[in-house]
Simulated assay, not measured.
Amino acid sequence: MQTLKFGLYNGGHLEQAATPGAAAYLVFQHGYKRGDYYQVEVDKAPAYLVVQLDSALSPALIYVTEKTWRYSIPFNDQREWPYPDGAFAEHRYYASVRFATADEIHARRNLAVNSHDLRGADHAFPHASANAETRGEYVFFARNAIDGYVANESHGNFPFQSWGIDQREDAELTVDFGRPVRIDTLILTLRADYPHDTYWTAGTAMFSDGSQLPLKMAKTAAPQSYSFEAKTVTWVRLTDLKRALGTEFFPALTELAVIGQDAQ
């Protein structure tokens, strides 16, 4: 049976450790310090894990490609915050990690969703990245487009975080799965804080296999779904996004879902 080690660290120093096993949890009663991070060590990599590192976050099924995965604790030091009130800010914590089951791994699901994605994350997937993020603010990071929240009638603080493109006409968003997945549907939820926002009328989904899918978009708060013949890919990219003509405001993406199954 595979085992994992789970601990809270700061600057390489172990603050608190869980009992090793196929599943582990930590309970502690003090606030986080700058530089704190969780570390998970597995016997073999790659591995599928289900993690919930704050009770305010939804559990996430992630794929780690290295034996050691670190999760740096976010700090609320900007004007707006993309997490629920109290996330990473209480003084009594419960954090857990376990190996995913075969049924969880192979289920048809949204393969892009990851409530625990971080900007610049390494070795943990799915992971979102972009060439533009409005003013470098947390509430406009690429990771917000795969966090599982679809509230889109406003912008800024949770639950209205989104991917903001910093008014770039060449903005692109990439979701990397870290391994082959078999997909057949994309679902886009545009931010719809009208009249503050505008919208995209069209774009292109590029895939790691070299194929492309044209996307026509409408001015709507409803999710917009695109189905296609199933393909095996390791990443998908939104590019060539076309802002509605005659508009000057802010197109943004609230959520991107990618539906399919693990191909491994």
Rank of each mutant, 00 (worst) to 15 (best):
M1G: 05
M1K: 03
T3I: 04
T3F: 02
G7I: 15
L8I: 13
L8W: 13
Y9Q: 05
G11M: 01
G12N: 03
L14K: 04
Q16P: 02
Q16N: 13
Q16R: 14
A18G: 15
T19P: 08
P20W: 15
P20D: 09
P20I: 15
A22E: 10
A24T: 14
Y25A: 14
F28M: 00
Y32M: 05
R34I: 10
R34D: 08
G35F: 14
Y37N: 01
Q39A: 12
Q39H: 04
E41Q: 13
V42C: 09
V42L: 14
V42D: 05
D43K: 13
D43F: 09
D43V: 09
P46E: 11
A47F: 13
Y48K: 11
V51R: 09
L53W: 08
L57D: 01
L61Y: 11
T68W: 08
T68M: 07
W69S: 04
W69R: 06
R70H: 01
R70F: 05
R79P: 06
E80Q: 08
P82Y: 15
P82R: 10
D85T: 04
G86L: 05
G86T: 01
A87P: 00
A87C: 03
A87T: 00
F88G: 00
F88K: 00
F88T: 00
A89S: 03
Y94A: 04
V97K: 07
R98H: 15
A100R: 04
A102D: 11
D103G: 11
E104C: 06
I105A: 13
H106E: 09
R109Y: 03
L111V: 00
L111R: 01
V113H: 09
H116A: 02
H116V: 01
R119T: 14
A121L: 02
H123F: 06
A124S: 07
H127P: 02
H127V: 04
R135L: 07
R135E: 08
V139K: 02
F141P: 02
Y149M: 14
V150K: 11
A151C: 11
A151T: 06
A151Y: 06
E153H: 13
H155W: 08
G156F: 07
N157M: 10
P159G: 10
P159H: 12
S162N: 15
D166S: 12
Q167Y: 15
E172R: 08
L173K: 10
T174V: 07
P180C: 13
D184S: 12
T185G: 12
T189D: 04
A192I: 07
D193T: 04
P195M: 09
H196K: 07
H196M: 05
T198H: 04
Y199Q: 05
Y199M: 12
T201K: 02
T204I: 11
T204V: 15
A205T: 03
F207N: 06
D209W: 00
G210W: 02
G210K: 00
L213H: 05
L215Y: 03
M217C: 10
K219M: 05
T220R: 10
T220E: 14
A221Y: 00
A222F: 04
S225K: 01
F228C: 03
E229Y: 02
A230E: 10
K231Y: 03
V233F: 06
T234F: 00
T239F: 11
L241E: 12
K242L: 09
K242Y: 07
G246V: 08
E248N: 12
F250T: 06
P251E: 06
A252R: 14
A252F: 15
L253R: 00
E255L: 07
L256I: 11
A257D: 01
I259L: 11
A263H: 10
Q264A: 07
